[in-house]
């Protein structure tokens, strides 16, 4: 952690993440208004002392809506990543350890899936499963799986031929011990780092799905959906697009910068 805070990237990422997590944890309680309350007299207003981030087309307070949307958005990113990375890592590690024909078959299938653009693939799954936040989460997780499996597998392959693994094999250790104690602890680093960076992608894809109307449904306060709903009023009050847009960007950037710093901290060669 000290190494992370030593780089400017790490500090920026940590600060952004603290703000985002603060909003996600306490947002619904510190929001000044009910996110669904209409203020008919104050529609599409810019920021003012009464409405700090302005109001949308129904006169709902944007700041309150943003704060209320934070838990859903962050949870979506984390949930999708944990699911996708978890499943991907299990597949990748098993393929890497098994080697031989199993490895070849699994990896060729994943290559096939990887060949499809990420967003297109997500859309395909959502179309199958139907709209909604849960379905979108699942879709993003499935999309992440092959990439993650590749990373986990290559990490396993680089560790598998190390001499301490050979030593364990020569000792006659069980396969379970070799995977659990010799291989896994040494591949966790790259997997965690990749996962952190992926959270930002998940949030962005989630927002995109929301924007396309395939993720969260109105009157949810999910940030992507907020942008979609406000789109036609963009020229009368740009603030209703800027607010959630900036929020998505901040969260994504926070995870991204933090992930970068984490990777540098894990890599002894990058240390000065």
């Amino acid at each position: 952690m000290r190494d992370i805070l030593r780089s400017p990237t790490g500090i920026a990422g940590t600060v952004l993440l603290l703000i985002v997590f603060g909003a996600a944890l306490f947002g619904p309680w510190i929001a000044p208004y009910d996110p669904q309350a209409f203020h008919a007299t104050a529609r599409l207003q810019g920021p003012s002392w009464r409405y700090l981030a302005g109001t949308d087309q129904y006169g709902r307070d944007l700041l309150s809506r943003l704060l209320n949307g934070a838990p859903a958005t962050v949870l979506f990113g984390l949930g999708a990543t944990v699911l996708g990375v978890g499943a991907g890592a299990i597949i990748g590690v098993s393929a890497g350890v098994a080697g031989g024909r199993t490895d070849t078959i699994v990896m060729r299938i994943l290559d096939g899936i990887l060949a499809m653009p990420e967003l297109l693939f997500t859309l395909l799954i959502v179309t199958f499963l139907g709209g909604g936040l849960g379905q979108a989460l699942l879709a993003v997780a499935v999309t992440f799986m092959p990439g993650m499996a590749r990373i986990a597998r290559s990490a396993v392959l680089s560790v598998r031929t190390r001499e301490y693994v050979l030593a364990a094999q020569a000792r006659g250790e069980s396969r379970l011990w070799i995977v659990g104690r010799e291989v896994l602890p040494n591949v966790l680093g790259p997997i965690i780092v990749e996962a952190t960076i992926r959270v930002s992608f998940a949030i962005m894809i989630g927002a995109t799905l929301g924007f396309l109307g395939l993720g969260a449904q109105p009157p949810s306060t999910e940030w992507g959906l907020m942008v979609a709903e406000a789109r036609q009023y963009m020229f009368r009050n740009p603030w209703c697009v800027i607010g959630p847009g900036v929020a998505v960007a901040m969260t994504a950037m926070g995870f991204n910068l933090f992930g970068d710093a984490l990777r540098d901290a894990f890599d002894p060669r990058r240390k000065r």
Binding site: E163, A167, R171, G172
Partner: peptide, 25 residues
């Protein structure tokens, strides 16, 4: 065919001391 008894009595030491010990143990 190598069993545990054989593996116990034949031990190996590798070339690279940096790579032959698990860094997480």
């Amino acid at each position: 065919d190598y069993d545990k008894a054989y593996r116990r009595e034949i031990q190996i030491v590798f070339q690279h001391p940096d790579a032959s010990l698990n860094p997480r143990m």
